[in-house]
Each structure stands twice: as structure tokens, then as C-alpha cells.
Computed example of a mutant assay.
Amino acid sequence: MEIRDLQAKAAQIRMDVLNMIFRAKTGHTGGSLSNADIVTALYYRIMKIDPANPKAKDRDRFILSKGHSVESLWSVLADRGFFPKEELATFSQFGTKLIGHPNNKVPGIEMNTGALGHGLAVAVGMALAAKRDGAGYRAFCLMGDGEQAEGSVWEAAMAGAHYNLDNLVGIIDRNRLQISGSTEEVMGLEPLETKWEAFGWNVVSIDGNDMQALIDTLEAIPSAAGKPTLIMANTVKGKGVSFAENVPHWHHHVPNEHELSLALGELAATLESYRREGV
């Protein structure tokens, strides 16, 4: 996909997210909107995956460590054909496989996540296995910034550098808000880039809602031989919906009918503008 196509796809993913959460009357809205560009870039341009063979040995691995923001991932997996798109309507309903966190009973999900701080350690193991097996696949792990307060993240970071895992990519959805407010008020993280560099990672800081920047950065990996890469994806929580952006309340706010109509209208206009530019 070209950049405009990816931007349009991300807008559609955001619309899916809002519809899913509205129908289910539950979900994590803000983070799913902020990470939509990241998962779109990975699944439509960067990662080696095959929806027809989701367990292919040479597939790239993706772990959504910030598992509560799963709605965007469900939408992407359905759109890529890992399961029928009609199943999105069952999100968080009784008996569904599409629960509020990644569920490895669903094709395309590598591991159940939700307990923050666990994803990177597993990604380290996957990347290390690839190295030792002489395999060419990569491991990508998307973390939240509030998640950086978990000690297990830093244990995994130390291991990733120790084993020279340049096939490992950590991405932080740095939207600066968590469930109880600003990350810097809840548990100060800065200087976050310096900390990751001190742990031996190659750190690249970008606008995580800029599709061109995401593609340029991800396609350049590994940009430092023998080092894992940490992408500091500076994003806007609630991205794409003007009245939700940078509003802590939208962490898990369920839109009402009026809010949904306004939000879908904004995103539809965004989608149409990208389509016009691509003609």
C-alpha cells in the first residue's frame, strides 16, 4: 500500500473501532485511536504475514503488550482476512472470541495479553529463538507508555540488548495519558529515550501518527547492527476525533449516539480527503 492508501485505511480502522465500542458499550477508545496508524503500517506494509497460513514458521511476530487497546488490532486482523469481518459485531459480547484483550484462540494472535509488562519479554524470546534457529523472522512489540512503569519491561530491555537482538522492535505508543491521568503525574518517565539508550537500544523518536514517518522508520530497521530498536511513537490519544484528542476521559469512554455520529463524520471526511488525494 502507498502512503495515502495507508492513511485512508487507518481512518477506516478508527471508524471500525468506534462502531465496535459503541455496539459493545465497552472498550478502550483513546489508545485504540492513537495506535491505529502504527498497526496499520505494520500489517499492511511492514510485516511478513499470511492470513491463509497464520502459523507460518517464517512469519513476523507481533505482540500487543498494551492489550487493552485491542479494538484497532481486531479491525486490522478482520480486514486482512484472519477472520470474517462480520465477527467484529460480536466484540465483547457473550461467547465471542473477540474479547477486550488479545485472545490467542483467534488466528493472528501470538499470545494473550493484558497484564501490562509481559509482552516485551515474550518478544525477546521470539527474537532470540529466531537468531538461534537461523530464521529470518522479526518480533514486534507495541507497548503503552504507562506500561513503562513495570519493572519487567526493563528486565526484558536489558536482555534484548545483551543478546544483540537486531531483529527485535519495541514500539511505545507515547500518547502521554493513562487511565488515571498524565503519565508524568502518575509515574514520571522522562527522560524516557535516554533510559532506553542506556539499556543498549537504538532509539528512534517519531510522530507516531505520521504514516510516512512510521514507514520510513520501520523500513530502515535494523538501523543499528547488533542492537534492538525502540521506536518512540509520539501519538495523540483519541487521534482522529477532535473532541476526544488528549482528553483523559476518553481512555475507556464509550461514545453516545451523538458523539458517535460526530466522530464518524469527522473520520469519513478524513477518509474522503485521502482518497481524493490518491486519485
Score class of each variant (00 low, 15 high):
60 D>M: 08
77 L>T: 06
67 G>V: 03
136 G>L: 03
117 G>A: 03
128 L>N: 10
82 F>N: 00
82 F>H: 07
49 I>D: 08
75 S>N: 05
95 G>A: 02
96 T>F: 00
58 D>N: 15
90 T>M: 00
129 A>S: 14
130 A>C: 12
71 E>S: 15
130 A>Y: 02
100 G>A: 08
52 A>D: 15
59 R>H: 14
108 G>C: 08
71 E>I: 08
88 L>D: 02
126 M>G: 04
94 F>H: 06
51 P>S: 12
92 S>T: 00
121 A>E: 03
124 V>L: 11
137 Y>M: 12
70 V>M: 05
129 A>R: 10
75 S>M: 11
105 K>T: 09
90 T>I: 01
132 R>M: 13
110 E>D: 15
57 K>F: 06
93 Q>K: 14
79 D>A: 15
77 L>H: 03
128 L>K: 15
60 D>R: 11
52 A>C: 04
106 V>G: 04
42 L>R: 04
79 D>Y: 13
124 V>E: 10
122 V>N: 12
84 P>Q: 10
112 N>R: 11
120 L>V: 13
59 R>L: 13
124 V>M: 12
50 D>R: 09
88 L>N: 04
109 I>F: 01
120 L>W: 11
81 G>Q: 05
73 L>A: 04
73 L>N: 05
116 L>F: 07
55 K>R: 13
105 K>Q: 12
94 F>K: 11
119 G>K: 10
50 D>N: 15
130 A>H: 11
88 L>Q: 00
84 P>Y: 12
91 F>Y: 15
104 N>M: 05
109 I>C: 00
53 N>C: 03
140 F>D: 06
54 P>I: 13
133 D>V: 07
62 F>S: 00
59 R>V: 14
123 A>T: 06
115 A>G: 08
47 M>N: 02
103 N>D: 09
80 R>M: 12
106 V>D: 00
54 P>V: 12
62 F>Q: 02
60 D>Y: 02
95 G>P: 01
126 M>E: 10
91 F>D: 01
104 N>W: 02
64 L>N: 01
63 I>H: 04
126 M>L: 15
121 A>T: 13
119 G>F: 14
140 F>I: 13
107 P>C: 09
42 L>F: 06
87 E>C: 03
113 T>K: 01
58 D>I: 09
56 A>T: 01
118 H>G: 03
105 K>E: 08
127 A>K: 07
62 F>Y: 12
50 D>T: 11
57 K>V: 14
81 G>H: 09
51 P>H: 09
82 F>R: 07
109 I>H: 00
67 G>W: 06
135 A>P: 00
74 W>M: 08
140 F>Q: 08
97 K>D: 11
95 G>M: 00
54 P>F: 09
86 E>L: 03
115 A>I: 08
46 I>Q: 05
131 K>T: 11
128 L>G: 00
89 A>W: 02
42 L>A: 02
56 A>I: 05
54 P>C: 09
106 V>Q: 04
55 K>M: 03
125 G>V: 06
59 R>I: 12
126 M>W: 11
141 C>L: 05
52 A>W: 04
112 N>K: 08
130 A>Q: 12
132 R>S: 03
115 A>K: 06
63 I>D: 01
85 K>C: 02
83 F>I: 14
93 Q>R: 08
